[in-house]
Lab assay of single mutants.
Amino acid sequence: MVQRGSKVRILRPESYWFQDVGTVASVDQSGIKYPVIVRFEKVNYSGINTNNFAEDELVEVEA
Rank of each mutant, 00 (worst) to 15 (best):
M1V: 11
M1K: 15
M1R: 15
V2Y: 14
V2C: 13
Q3S: 11
Q3G: 08
Q3P: 04
Q3I: 10
Q3E: 07
R4N: 06
R4I: 15
G5D: 02
G5I: 01
S6V: 09
S6Y: 06
S6C: 14
K7H: 08
K7L: 13
K7T: 08
V8K: 05
V8A: 01
I10R: 05
I10P: 02
R12F: 05
R12N: 09
P13H: 08
P13K: 14
P13T: 11
E14V: 06
E14R: 09
E14C: 13
E14D: 14
Y16Q: 03
W17C: 06
F18Q: 02
F18I: 04
F18R: 01
Q19M: 15
Q19T: 05
Q19W: 11
D20Q: 13
D20S: 10
D20L: 12
D20R: 08
V21Y: 06
V21P: 01
V21R: 00
V21N: 02
G22R: 01
G22Q: 05
G22H: 02
T23G: 02
T23H: 04
V24W: 02
V24H: 01
V24P: 01
V24C: 07
A25K: 09
A25H: 11
S26P: 01
S26N: 10
S26A: 13
S26Q: 10
S26Y: 14
S26R: 11
V27G: 02
D28W: 05
D28Y: 05
Q29I: 11
S30N: 08
S30T: 13
S30P: 05
S30R: 09
G31P: 07
I32M: 10
I32Y: 07
I32F: 07
K33V: 07
Y34Q: 06
P35S: 10
P35T: 09
P35H: 08
V36A: 02
V36S: 00
V36R: 01
V36Y: 14
V36G: 00
V36P: 00
V36H: 01
I37C: 15
V38E: 00
V38W: 00
V38C: 07
R39G: 03
R39V: 14
R39L: 11
F40G: 00
F40E: 01
F40Y: 01
E41L: 09
E41Q: 10
K42N: 10
K42L: 07
V43Y: 15
V43E: 11
N44F: 07
N44C: 11
Y45M: 15
Y45G: 14
Y45H: 15
Y45T: 14
S46A: 15
S46H: 14
S46W: 15
G47F: 05
G47E: 04
G47A: 04
I48R: 09
I48L: 13
I48S: 14
N49D: 10
T50K: 06
T50E: 13
N51K: 05
N51H: 13
N52F: 08
A54H: 07
A54I: 03
A54L: 05
A54N: 09
A54K: 08
E55T: 12
E55N: 11
E55M: 15
E55V: 14
D56T: 09
E57P: 04
L58I: 12
L58K: 00
V59N: 06
V59W: 08
E60S: 10
V61D: 04
E62W: 11
A63P: 13
A63T: 12
A63L: 11
A63S: 12
